[in-house]
Write a protein that binds this DNA or RNA. Structure first.
Lengths: 168, 168
DNA sequence: TATTGTTATACTCTATAACTATA
DNA sequence: TATAGTTATAGAGTATAACAATA
């Protein structure tokens, strides 16, 4: 798609960023979310449930921390964890440090499901970027990484600092 | 984030695509969806409603065509259009060619809202990619465009062929 | 018979506000 | 008082199945 062709989602207007970039990114995000949704459905999960399991892979966050990771209200996370717990995918544990808090941990069943989802998702994304050369794929990865890291930093969510969470 | 660092969403496993790429793309899609969600909320819309208005900007698709564009079931689109119609953002019109079909069109109020959303969204995405140089932004745009175009082709949705829809 | 769209139903997801328990 | 979490409530979004109208 050339930069001056019309977009599916939005329309050409002047603005801070180039619309072509904006629209391409929006559409790319829909394509990726579509892939995520397909593999989630395949495993009987939703995108958010899949994301929850992925986060819990190497963390035991509180409800509040999960809300920060997911960008949701704490009450939404309560329901999310409720449904996952009912299905035996996660468990709540009392926090040893704060009587008000709970820590959410993934179960072996949840781990299995998360791993199957990961495998399927990699295959889907492999298909999605199949038209890019290996060099282009690396380039896309690098650019996406820069954007994601900068965004996380701006939002004050350090994806790699786990001092706030107890590691299993 | 370096390629060998752990991901937020998914976990390192061998697969068809490099996990670093997969995870970076997933996280990028969440970041973009987050920006979309914020501007949609700003305008009193959801992401899907915003997307609907964007699609209707230069098309008058049937419910079935909309379902194809959005990747939803036709019954979901019925409800989506119902809610948008109640708010005066879109209208249903009888199809001149098929008595079973309706054509969905955007209203002036819907146009206004879509344009405001577009302006806000461009600013948000401008912030999101602020850490990339202009050259890198163009590169990201180009790579995203290739992926999106290939995906649309594979799914049999020609984003630019409007012969199936009546143009206003 | 097949297709288009709607309706009925049920579930997930989400937020706001009020509440409980702990700090 | 302030914070962590839950509950109650309401609404959007989604899919499946059954249905009506048209092709």
């Amino acid at each position: 798609m050339a930069a001056d062709e019309h977009p599916l989602v939005l329309t050409p207007l002047p603005g801070e960023a180039d619309l072509g970039l904006v629209d391409a990114l929006a559409q790319l995000s829909f394509a990726v979310q579509g892939a995520l949704g397909r593999i989630a459905t395949e495993q009987g999960l939703s995108i958010v449930q899949t994301r929850l399991l992925g986060i819990l892979r190497d963390r035991r966050p509180t409800i509040k921390e999960l809300a920060g990771f997911l960008g949701l209200d704490k009450s939404s996370v309560t329901g999310l964890v409720d449904r996952a717990e009912t299905r035996g995918l996660v468990t709540r544990m009392a926090s040893p440090r704060d009587g008000r808090s709970v820590q959410v941990a993934i179960t072996p069943a949840g781990q299995d499901l998360a791993e199957r989802a990961t495998t399927s998702f990699m295959a889907e994304i492999g298909d999605l970027v199949a038209d890019l050369s290996p060099t282009q794929q690396k380039r896309l990865f690098g650019l996406a990484s820069i954007v994601v890291a900068a965004d996380a930093r701006r939002r004050g969510i350090n994806l790699f600092d786990t001092t706030a969470s107890t590691r299993p």
